[in-house]
Design a protein around this nucleic acid. Sequence first.
DNA 1: GCGGGATATTCCAATAACTGATATATTCCA
DNA 2: TGGAATATATCAGTTATTGGAATATCCCGC
Lengths: 102, 102
Amino acid sequence: MILTALAEESAHGYGIMRDVEKLSNQRVKLRTSTLYAALDRLSANDLIEIDREEVASGRLRRYYQLTERGRTELAAAAVGQRAQAETALRRLGVTDLGWSPS
Amino acid sequence: MILTALAEESAHGYGIMRDVEKLSNQRVKLRTSTLYAALDRLSANDLIEIDREEVASGRLRRYYQLTERGRTELAAAAVGQRAQAETALRRLGVTDLGWSPS
DNA sequence: GCGGGATATTCCAATAACTGATATATTCCA
DNA sequence: TGGAATATATCAGTTATTGGAATATCCCGC
């Protein structure tokens, strides 16, 4: 979800938090401790990298962006997850296969 | 993924393991320790329950099935994940939106 | 002007989850 | 006869998440 939040344009931690909430229809709320730790791990694994740092009104803002590897892995994961979700719905016999991506 | 594995019919641990591998195109391999602990947790959370136990050739086989709650939560999660995957692909500019659910 | 919520990151201790390994036991195939 | 597949259990060690507190500014309403 963090990678998805960064798929369109670079964002900083707090912005990612808000986007992930929106993406999940408020069902997933990242704690700051989870988020910043995840950001560090994703950086260490070369899936994201620092785009730039800004200081706006005394507050630091560190913008992250997807790396090429992050882009590739997100695409692969998304294709897999979509297929898995379809399988689940088909197996459950859910007939309404409509959706509204945000 | 465990819930998805159980969406069609009840299955036992080892069968779930194989199905999850298949569902994920071999990308996710559940370790036995992960799997059986997860099964215990899902039971405790009333998402799955024991369907029946069999003894086939000296080996125990414990079949699990989704509870009504498990069914509902899986459906909700699948709808959410599909939407999230679509968003990711759209944001990445992936134009091939076809898929082949297994 | 004052409290509260939003913005923004950092760090900690406690809890939860996953990993890798080992154990047990049978069946089937080469 | 040795290895892979089938099946589950359990343990110690690592990794990840949680919930909280700390720090600081800005904006809104009252």
